[in-house]
């Protein structure tokens, strides 16, 4: 007997069975892989933080290579001397600070709670780096990153990443040539925490002027660039009070 696939009752039953089957498959896949995915994300964060302070495996022009995943945990504890959590006036040490979810903290801040701000103090070849995590909006989705500062508030390194910027355009914020432009720029304009603007037409495509709080923009990625500017200035301003206490004047 051929199935009568035109009947309404059949349609409803088919849809219900399909939803249950598909739901079961996806739930199974998701729960069996989630611990592995979480672990990947955790290691990636450590890699990103180390990248910003110059601990990476970059070789040659244009390469953006992290410390390999099997070594990252060791390198992280070797170079990151302290992890702080700044909560209003209270500063505590917490070696899990890098796991703080900035998105959740910003939602909490909107609800009137005090934000927990993680900050990492790194030490490489006797030099101290203050690494600030950042989060902002690009054209399509979230962008985030880390900026490593010295005690003069001069950028020593940055790392940017994004959830879904356009490949070839906005996605180029994670290209080496863009990230390297930030090195040497100061986030201070006088004594004001101005951040660094991704500027179009600043007549400095080679980025030789380091005291203008500007880097050259990416062609075709205006909104992503504006997002990066806004992200840097918002993020450093959240840390302003702390940075004032460590800044060498």
């Amino acid at each position: 007997m051929a199935l009568n696939t035109e009947k309404n009752s059949y349609t409803v039953i088919f849809a219900a069975v399909m939803v249950v089957i598909v739901g079961t498959i996806l739930a199974f896949v998701s729960s069996s892989l989630s611990s592995k995915i979480e672990e990947n994300k955790r290691l990636e964060k450590q890699q990103n933080i180390l990248y910003a302070m110059g601990v990476n495996e970059n070789s040659g022009e244009g390469s953006v290579d992290f410390v390999p995943t099997d070594k990252v945990a060791g390198e992280f504890s070797k170079y990151i001397k302290e992890q702080l959590v700044i909560e209003g006036d209270k500063i505590t040490k917490d070696d899990q600070a890098y796991l703080i979810d900035l998105k959740k903290q910003s939602t909490a801040a909107k609800a009137g709670k005090t934000r927990k701000l993680p900050l990492f103090i790194g030490d490489k070849d006797g030099k101290t780096f203050y690494i600030i995590p950042m989060r902002g909006k690009g054209l399509w989705d979230a962008i985030w990153g880390f900026v490593a500062l010295d005690d003069q508030m001069v950028v020593q390194g940055v790392y940017f990443d994004h959830a879904g910027e356009t490949p070839g355009l906005g996605a180029n914020i994670k290209q080496r040539y863009f990230m390297d432009d930030f090195v040497g720029e100061s986030i201070l304009d006088g004594t004001k925490y101005a951040g660094i603007t991704v500027a179009k037409g600043n007549n400095d495509p080679l980025n030789q002027i380091k005291d203008d709080n500007e880097v050259d923009a990416l062609a075709g990625a205006t909104i992503t660039g504006n997002g990066v500017s806004a992200m840097i200035s918002e993020s450093v301003n959240l840390y302003k009070d702390y940075l004032e206490t460590i800044r060498v004047k």
């Binding site: 199935l3 696939t5 035109e6 059949y10 349609t11 088919f14 849809a15």
Partner: peptide, 8 residues
């Protein structure tokens, strides 16, 4: 293909 209801 033979069991999919054509409506959905």
């Amino acid at each position: 293909r033979n069991i999919i209801p054509s409506k959905i």
